[in-house]
Amino acid sequence: MNSHDEQLLIGYLLQALEPEQQQQVARRIQEDPLWQRQAQRWRRLLHQLEPARAAPDPPDHLVERTLQAIHRKTATAGSQEAFSGRASRWSVLDVVTVAVVLALLALLVLPAVGYQRFRAQVLHCSNNLRYLGQALCQYHHTHNHFPETPAEGPLRLASAFVPLLYQNHLLEDPARLLCYATPQRVKALQLLTVEQLQRLPEPRRRQLLARMSGDYGYCIGYLGPDGSYVPFRCQGDGHLALMADAPDPQRSGCPGKNHGPWGFNVLYASGAVRFVNVANPTGRDHLFCNRRGQVCAGCDARDAVILPGSARVLLALD
């Protein structure tokens, strides 16, 4: 007899089986001598436990006392729901306390998290500008001036420096031109050489070139003493601003929104990158317009004007 049969036999003796099973086991006991012997054995075993069956009688008036207790507690609590364990575990005070603690924690933690994200973005952006600064520097070593943004012709946009860097193999990765480099934005930014651009029809050429400098602006040239348009050269002035986060094309002379309203990164000719706080600018003059307050070529070799890539280069305002 296996343990399953013994479990059935115990269930039969204790009448713990369902009625059909009770009948089946009863028939089995009648027919099978082995089952009869086992039933006898289990009867003896179960009989040994009988002495512990005795239990005290319930106390007098238990029913009345139970009803009174229920009535008393119901009246005290005022509602049935108050008796549920869930209701007694959390009081209003507990919920308010937890909410206040969570609010305080959020006040402490969220600004710190937000600030760290902001700092990481600024750092990523400044690394891009540092990389572009090295490319511009190498271009300068070769050509003795920084890439020129022509004031005439089909490439008359501030972003014209990008095809020059690209065709000289100084800039390969378009992601370096993006402050927020998502895969979609990188894919949309197509780098072309000057020759490739010149082969394109006009609307398409202008459209591609306008996007090519990504999130950054570049300094256009200045007007020399004889009134000619001159690209910047490195003349030992490390404070000359070469590039920066692109100014807002909608609001002339205002910084763009790469880092919100707090400031923008600037690349200087020395190769240094600094984050300029809009509320407390450190520069002596405005980066996004010339000394006369115009968004066009600089007044002299010390007057750098940074334009967004899509802006047309103007020598002077009419």
């Binding site: 006392r65 229920i70 507690k73 049935q80 008796f83």
Partner: peptide
């Protein structure tokens, strides 16, 4: 046992 007995019927009343 009496306390628990009363608690049992209190729960029965509530639920």
């Amino acid at each position: 046992a009496e306390d628990v007995f009363q608690g049992t019927f209190l729960q029965l009343h509530v639920k």
